[in-house]
């Protein structure tokens, strides 16, 4: 680890000004990812501006009925918050599916969104990685790709975003509130993370010095919500694939029909993947295993698996069908 200066931020504005004015400065939140990267040599900031004690640790109700989650609310506190558990269970479930009890006590909401890929080639400074060192190549393309992307990857990067929380937030149509030197801006969560393209070093659309201050959740969210994560161990492992779904079923006209479906996928792309093709297919459809399977297949037509991760295609399809069946009360017949 290279030597660095440490400052505790007095307020959000001065924290933003300090980091904006120093190209090698970074914000420090819970530190669970950044401190680890500093040990590994993946990150080498010259200045850390600690924002973990700023008064951004509250969950508050918005005037429009939505909810504001402060950027420094810890993952464990967010998962246990009564309003999250009652109104946004998909978010509580996603948070509880991530990391360990200790890490959830440390990790912040803003930091969770900004955590970086767990691609082993990214985390090993002896390997070529366009994300860590632009232009150096991608060792994963010639390596072991079981954990890599099947959607939206580029020739330069096949890494996946590791967050569970962000997948649920994508399905909830959350908005990221960001403070920069020029003031505040609001970014829809689905547009916050990027696909790798030719700039895999950029995980998000944030500019240097911009600080996440909150995540807003909209009011009037359908109550049928679920998060399901498939992984190599029963606990404490990153997703192979995950599905967050928020669904509304209307039965007023007789036959039940899906009037609102929001689905996001984890473990499959460089960002939480909003499954908009599946959503379009489901819109107006009667809930059935067949319609769920058609929706999943519509989404997965664009999948482009690598050498070791073709299994993710049926795994996403089956998980999506199972989650939707569960949410709509459809008998989940054996899925091929």
């Amino acid at each position: 680890m290279i030597p660095f200066d440490y400052q505790r931020a007095d307020d959000a504005d001065s924290a933003v000004a300090t980091v904006t004015g120093h190209p090698q400065a970074q914000f420090l939140g819970g530190g669970t990812n950044l401190v680890d990267h500093m040990k590994l040599g993946v990150a080498d900031p010259e200045l850390l501006v600690d924002i973990s004690r700023l008064p951004l640790d509250e969950v508050t109700e918005l005037d429009d009925g939505g909810l504001r989650i402060g950027a420094t609310v810890r993952n464990s506190d967010l998962a246990a918050h009564p309003l999250i558990r009652r109104r946004y269970p998909v978010l509580a479930e996603a948070l509880l599916a991530g990391a360990s009890g200790q890490l959830r006590n440390m990790a912040t909401t803003g930091g969770n969104l900004l955590q970086r890929t767990r691609c082993v080639y990214f985390q090993d400074v002896t390997m070529a990685c366009n994300k860590r060192e632009p232009g150096s190549g991608c060792a994963a393309l010639e390596g072991y790709t079981r954990y890599h992307a099947i959607l939206g990857a580029s020739d330069g990067c096949v890494a996946v975003h590791p967050s569970d929380m962000a997948v649920a937030m994508a399905a909830l149509d959350a908005t990221v509130v960001v403070l920069g030197a020029a003031g505040e801006r609001r970014i829809p969560l689905a547009e916050f993370h990027r696909l790798p393209g030719s700039e895999p070093q950029r995980d998000t659309v944030l500019e240097h010095g911009e600080l996440i201050t909150a995540v807003d959740l909209p009011a009037s969210t359908p109550r049928r919500q679920a998060y399901r994560k498939v992984r190599d161990r029963a606990s404490y492992a990153f997703a192979l694939v995950s599905v967050a779904a928020v669904v509304k079923v209307d039965a007023a006209e007789g036959e039940p029909c899906i009037t609102d479906a929001r689905i996001a996928l984890g473990g499959v792309a460089h960002k939480p993947w909003r499954a908009s093709r599946a959503e379009e297919t489901l819109s107006g459809a009667a809930p059935s295993v067949e319609s769920f399977r058609r929706a999943a297949e519509a989404e997965l037509e664009q999948a482009d698996p690598l050498g070791d991760n073709g299994f993710k295609i049926p795994m996403v399809r089956n998980t999506m069908v199972a989650v939707l069946a569960d949410l709509t009360g459809v008998e989940p017949e054996a899925v091929a």
């Binding site: 440490y6 420090l28 530190g31 669970t32 401190v35 680890d36 850390l48 009890g101 200790q102 890490l103 006590n105 440390m106």
Partner: peptide, 8 residues
């Protein structure tokens, strides 16, 4: 409870 190895 926290893992003290990741805390500065």
């Amino acid at each position: 409870r926290v893992t003290s190895c990741l805390v500065l």
